[in-house]
Amino acid sequence: MEVVNSPDTRIGAAEYLSGIWRSRYFWLSLVRMDLRSRYRRSALGIGWSLLQPLAMTCVLCVVFSTMFGVDVRTYGAYLLIGLSFWQFISNCVLQGCRAFQAAEAYIRQMPQPMLIYPLRVVLASGFHFLLSLGLALLMVWILIGFGNLPALPLIVPVLLMVFLLGLALAMIFSVVNAYFPDTQHLSEVGLSMAFYLTPVIYTKELLTQRKMDWLIDINPLANALELLRAPILYGDLPSLWRLGMASGTIGLVCLIAYALFFSRQRTLIFRL
């Protein structure tokens, strides 16, 4: 197969995707290595990634139920979903910042579609996310019951959306960080601000009662979280409004990621 390298070579989407597919064994083994090397020498192994959101959930449940008298049964699962989602997003952003630096040796060795490096980050943290989401589901079934079963198939498209959002964030931050190394520190600050702007640990009623719904509507993270909670917690279908706002805001993030990533990826290697 003839490969042409010139300033005006444009690679079509189909060709790019098939390149990703061809190197699947490579990036899948990177993901597997990330998962394995993280816990290889620890006693609890993969359990550690569950422990973090679980411990937070326990503490916050105790605090909130005594202080504000919330119902622990629903609030526990509500928190666990929120915290695992947040851990996934912040992993995508923070490890996304380092996606290219971490893979610099590979990038300098052989040409691969650059998208596989943010993808690796998202898949590795997505694995942990799915685990703790499963735990939350188990919690709902035990504490609340099986009322959510009819709505559960909805999780699949929602998870796909959340995954896309994570990938878009990892793409954006990986490219921006290659140009400005300070991004890593800035994004830490940004994430902790976003954490309080998103109903992760407080309920969204706190916002709606004060007529601050728009804060959720314009926030892609809050939208995604709402979509995620509705079927698992309440067995509800999300409202059309929420669905529209979610697709709109997440679509916008994806569009930015797409434009930024593919305008820069060819010459990214000079920024490493």
């Binding site: 003839e2 042409v4 390298n5 010139s6 300033p7 990038i107 040409p111 290697i269």
Partner: peptide, 14 residues
């Protein structure tokens, strides 16, 4: 190897 993109001209590898 295709690791670096050319700035001008063409490299064809088959």
């Amino acid at each position: 190897a295709g690791v670096y993109p050319v700035t001008s001209g063409r490299v064809v590898v088959n």
